[in-house]
Design a protein around this nucleic acid. Sequence first.
RNA 1: GCUGAUGUGGCUCAAUGGCAGAGCAUCUCACUCGUAAUGAGAAGGUUGUGGGUUCGAUUCCCACCAUCAGCUCCA
Length: 586
Amino acid sequence: MSEENNQYTFENETYRKTYWHTCSHVMAQAVKRLWPEVKLAIGPSIDEGWYYDMDAPFAFTPEHLEQIEAEMRKICKEKLKLERFELPRPEALQLMEEKGEPFKVELINDLPEGEVISFYKQGEFTDLCAGPHLDSTGRIKGNALKLTACNAAYWRGDSNRETLQRIYGIAFPKKDELDAYLARIEEAKKRDHRRLGKELGLFMLRDEGPGFPFFLPKGMTLKNTLLDYWRKVHKKYGYVEISTPIMLNRQLWERSGHWDHYKNNMYTTVIDDVDFAVKPMNCPGGMLVYASEPHSYRDLPLRVGEIGLVHRHELSGALHGLFRVRCFNQDDAHVFMTREQMQDVIQETVRLFDEVYSVFGLSYTIELSTMPEDHIGTVEEWERNQDILKQAITAMGKEFVINEGDGAFYGPKLDFHLADSLGRTWQCGTIQLDSQLPERFELEYTGEDGQKHRPVMIHRVVLGSIERFIGVITEHFAGAFPAWLAPVQVKLLPVTDRAAEYAAKVSAQLDAQGFRVEVDSRNEKIGKKIREATLEKVPFMLVVGDRDMENGTVSVRRRSGEDLGAMSLEDFAALLGDEVKTMAIK
RNA sequence: GCUGAUGUGGCUCAAUGGCAGAGCAUCUCACUCGUAAUGAGAAGGUUGUGGGUUCGAUUCCCACCAUCAGCUCCA
């Protein structure tokens, strides 16, 4: 995906960003020409294009955007020079007040003392801006720019402040690059897991349960196959598996801290006059399991996995297909260990992540999230744990970026972000270091010295949410899952009714060998059956007709269209078995 | 939750202040066919829900629900 993102002929990123930034000024100028009453906020360049936030007394429509585009083209043709100038604070404030730009006035007021206050002027339009910019609006190719969307955004990202309108745009030095970009966006939409999920019969969402996905037979097969793999790979890494209740009483959630720190997102109910909450996380249940019997240092690290169904009340506007739901399965695990084992355990976990993600061909970026405002535990403890996470991945030669203040309330974490087909990243894996919950639940182990000690733990998920991960790989593979994952691996296509019985026999034989097989016994032409099986993205089609019956063969076709010709069923089973094995764990 | 848009048979989409239409899918019949759509016929809709305006609302207005784009949030 990243290759596709780098098709631009812009010389380099700095130039690209400068180009887009100047576009945002041209757009603001166009808007002010058309509707002088519109107030300007901020208009930066972004990874793909630019936006400008504005406050208008009316809502921008697609027609407005076309008008703005037309005016932008005019401004490009006018070849206006961009001139930078600086003003002392009082004059800068006076200029923006005269122009009636309250947001700019606020920005200037918030600039630190001594900061240079610079403006860029092009024709009649002047904007507060640090720059840099192109030297002329004539540098922008007017017919290779497009305003792509208009949406809401909060002033300064604060949901308590004004809601502004954000207009997004994209531009390239050449028209055909813009076309290629727009075509890529269209192509990415075809991979949307919500669309593919419907087309392939994987899952559905209903008004009756917003954010609570239904899995259909094919999606369920996919999910179970994924979980089979998960169990195998975790067994290999020394994990055991448990299952804890979906609902536990209030006392437990108070003890874990969730009642105080997470209550707004929890579904609660009253049973026999006692408050209960549906679990938003699996850890408290896992604590109870650990605490249910004494442990020796010899048992550590103790790796306890759980495919846990959790419910979280997300804001209605945040829901998004399988990517953001209110109920999902976490491929959770808690590893209990001594302080000395922390670094090893973290590294072992990262190696497990690498193994799993590489099976799917997914790349990731790592974020280290540090202490949030709402937290438990001391600052020293947090810093110590953050350092351990840093050291562990640095020693493995991995890069990370810091996400300040975004840790869980009980500890810092490493988040693994996987990219979807639109280049959006989704947090899937996470490793959270926690010395707070063991404290709260008074977990213990007996050390070599015969004394009781407190273990530390990590909370970790690899796939994250099974649901989200299915969404990510659906887009990643564009619905064409590798054979080991495909809900249907083989589709038998009898050419005529005469071959129906033979097809059923072949199907039964493959089924007995553990392959997932379907027979298309409809009275339809072979061309139609092939077309539909291809659209269903079934990896292998076996065409069987009179010739195959006579010779005891199957005629094999891949979903790519490749015709492998007739072969014996044994040969085909070997071929399929091989393909399945190369992808999955031994 | 906020701003804007959308909501029509299972799916994709038309249309209109005056009897709601197509393609695909479904069902029936014929065809028995060798690598991306055989033909004919039938059936299928209180136009998201609830109010209102109107002689008449699927269409106009209001509220709610859901979805979409984004913002905010996201253990």
